[in-house]
């Protein structure tokens, strides 16, 4: 554990807390994409199957469970919890996440899994677990897209929603620093190039948002995206 990874994780947790608070306190889900959070839930469920098979640390296990539970509760609130669910604007949340996110990621994960030859010689169960891990890495990199597209529609971005996306983006940017750090200071550190590639892609998707976020913070004014 290094300082970049810890800050990255804390940034991730913080973004989730910001969103949970926003939903609970404002009792309002407008401007929030349910599809993004369903994608994140799928990401966590497919990546953390190792909760049952590999123990890394108490920290790791607790965080994994916390991510799954908190994201599940976000999805539950937006979908079912009255009165929040009545404020969810389904008509605006239109990114076709099955066709353009889940499907392509599943295909890509299958291809990389078999082309890389990873998993050959391992049991079917381990192979499926590896495949799901790779799928989750791909899917996480683009899971924010429905949310970013929804924001483009509204343009005027609420403070808390803006902060949520900012911390969510910072999390993966900090992970990149963590990978660089580990490459230098951990002998025998195993590289996962799919994770690196997706981590960079994921961070780049936030770049444009970061730019307008910073500008609005500097002006101290309201945050709106350009047309």
């Amino acid at each position: 554990m290094n300082v970049f990874r810890l800050c990255g994780d804390m940034s991730h947790v913080f973004s989730i807390v910001v969103l949970l608070l926003r939903l609970r306190v404002a009792k309002n889900a407008s401007g929030i994409s349910l599809r993004t959070h369903e994608l994140f839930l799928l990401v966590f469920l497919t990546r953390y199957t190792d909760l049952f098979t590999t123990y890394y640390s108490l920290y790791n296990s607790c965080m994994k469970i916390a991510y799954i539970l908190s994201t599940a509760s976000i999805v539950y609130m937006i979908r079912l919890s009255d009165p929040i669910c009545t404020t969810y604007d389904k008509a605006q949340d239109t990114f076709r996440h099955w066709a353009f996110a889940v499907g392509p990621c599943a295909v890509l994960a299958t291809l990389t899994h078999f082309i890389s030859g990873e998993g050959s010689g391992y049991s079917l169960f381990v192979n499926i677990q590896e495949l799901l891990w790779t799928f989750s890495i791909y899917l996480e990199s683009i899971a924010i897209l429905p949310q970013l597209i929804l924001l483009q529609r509204y343009r005027e971005v609420e403070n808390l929603t803006g902060n949520y996306i900012f911390f969510m983006g910072s999390y993966r940017a900090l992970y990149i620093l963590n990978w660089i750090y580990r490459t230098y200071y951990e002998p025998g550190y195993r590289h996962h190039y799919v994770a690196y590639f997706c981590g960079v892609l994921q961070t780049l998707l936030y770049a444009d948002f970061f730019y307008y976020y910073m500008q609005s913070k500097r002006r101290g004014g309201r945050f709106s995206l350009p047309t």
């Binding site: 990874r5 994780d9 991730h12 190792d50 098979t53 590999t54 890394y56 640390s57 790791n60 965080m63 994994k64 991510y67 990873e118 998993g119 391992y122 381990v126 677990q129 590896e130 891990w133 992970y175 963590n178 990978w179 025998g188 550190y189 195993r190 590289h191 996962h192 994770a195 690196y196």
Partner: peptide
């Protein structure tokens, strides 16, 4: 296979 590298991350 599962151990090491970015697989001990979140």
């Amino acid at each position: 296979l599962k151990d090491g590298g970015s697989k001990d991350e979140l």
